[in-house]
Design a binder for these strands. Structure first.
Lengths: 245, 245
DNA sequence: GTCAATGTGTTGTCCTGACATTCGGCCGGG
DNA sequence: CCCGGCCGAATGTCAGGACAACACATTGAC
């Protein structure tokens, strides 16, 4: 067992452990490393790649966190059986659709500065009534309505414009403004569509909707966005992968 | 800033980094470390606790993964603003309810060995038609119907019994049998209840249901369970926390 | 007074080394 | 033939050190 060909570039600014992790992930995706296959031991890999064991270990840990491989003490490291699917990371719907080969488009229903409602204020950890940007968008995939997304953002960081919102996802705009979203808490549920919602989404009144509220924080630990979204359950579902330890 | 009192027990079999992480998590939960508070630097902590920096770092990384704190290079480490809620880990509904102070109970509708359906076979990575255990349960919280859960398990590992299923969650049974569930892939959606489903759950036909399918793997990378679950959307929702890096 | 350069403190990455723990197969005894 | 103990191999944990990259505040130049 020598495994896939992996080479690191020490002159690259990309961390070595990340280079290794990416190349293993690619090999698994290509099928070069089949489900159930054993990887070389950490010591062998370190030797082969000219890296130290901690660096190799960090790379492997990265893949374990993504649910691609499994480690067993005293035994070794194996690729998880069955096909792996990408779970929800901190991407916007826009990017998700684009990656799935579908054409995203957006109609901005509302974009204004408003006094922050109480529920949103508690989620964003700001004082109720303070000014926040409020945003409501109808999202399409291949011209077909898919979701209604409502977002609130504290004013400080970035000024949203209509043009930007029609061309890109919210998270891409935030990233471009230097805001690094690091994590989020999400609540996923379902409910029946109201008449108005049904009309916007092209469903019947009472049709099941998938709901998600999300509060995202940046690397200051500050909440930068709160969203309440509804999706047509007939056209959309969420994927989540969980890995422990 | 000296932070909360933390002491490690070197004679304990619990890893040092885990002891540290748990005590910080507890301090945050107690409010002793308030949202936005800065932690001591890694070097200060290492010095104060008599540990090496890698160990302290591992503890902090653990908390970052759980979405409790945020790190910024060149600046420091802070507690995430706002209250944090526990996300879906690899626990069963049974445990979740018990922790929330509600009384879980289970009615086993079906428990048999069957030929594996094709969709399940692909998910579990076994050959279609091979024998698997099939399980269907109606779950209650405080005596009120909450969910219908259907599971399939490859035969090998553990033999399920009716008694065990009524007293404990599926994951607890698996754990007791020495199976260590390490990760899972989940798909979350919604749909309308059929007449039969509505009757079981005490909802009206067409009422929105939250659906989740989950495939869980153990530390061999083998899939050990596939489940298709429906929840009353009016009584249940899922929480997910995501953290990057 | 404004703006650029510098300095300090912090996390990010990477290294070497060591021992503990666990698993699973080998081998020998009964 | 079966079973138990031994042992090698792999991951898990921990130490201590070094330098890089980065953010922020301070200082200095213009």
């Amino acid at each position: 067992m020598t495994g896939p060909e992996i080479a690191v570039d020490r002159s690259s600014p990309v961390p070595l452990y990340f280079q290794v992790a990416e190349q293993f992930a690619a090999a698994i995706q290509r099928g070069e490393l089949a489900p159930g296959d054993r990887l070389d031991s950490e010591l062998q890999l370190a030797d082969r790649l000219g890296l130290s064991r901690p660096t190799v270990r960090q790379a492997i840990q990265h893949l374990v966190d993504k649910g691609l491989i499994v480690r067993r003490r005293g035994v070794g490291t194996q690729v998880v059986r069955g096909e792996v699917r990408r779970g929800v990371e901190l991407t916007s719907l826009h990017d998700d659709l684009a990656r799935a080969g579908r054409q995203p488009s957006t109609s901005v229903l509302e974009l204004a500065t408003v006094a922050c409602p109480v529920e949103v204020a508690t989620a964003l950890d700001v004082t109720a009534g303070s000014e926040v940007q409020h945003l409501r968008r109808l999202r399409f995939a291949d011209g077909e309505p898919l979701a209604v997304m409502e977002n609130w953002l504290p004013l400080h960081p970035v000024r949203l414009t209509l043009d930007a919102l029609q061309a890109r996802g919210l998270y891409a705009i935030l990233r471009a403004a230097g805001i690094r979203v690091r994590g989020a808490q999400q609540r996923i549920g379902a409910r029946a569509a109201t008449g108005a919602e049904a009309q916007m989404l092209g469903e019947r009144r009472g049709a099941p909707l998938l709901t998600m509220t999300r509060t995202a924080y940046d690397d200051h630990g500050r909440y930068v966005e709160h969203g309440a979204h509804i999706y047509r359950a007939s056209r959309y579902s969420l994927e989540v992968t969980v890995a422990e330890r």
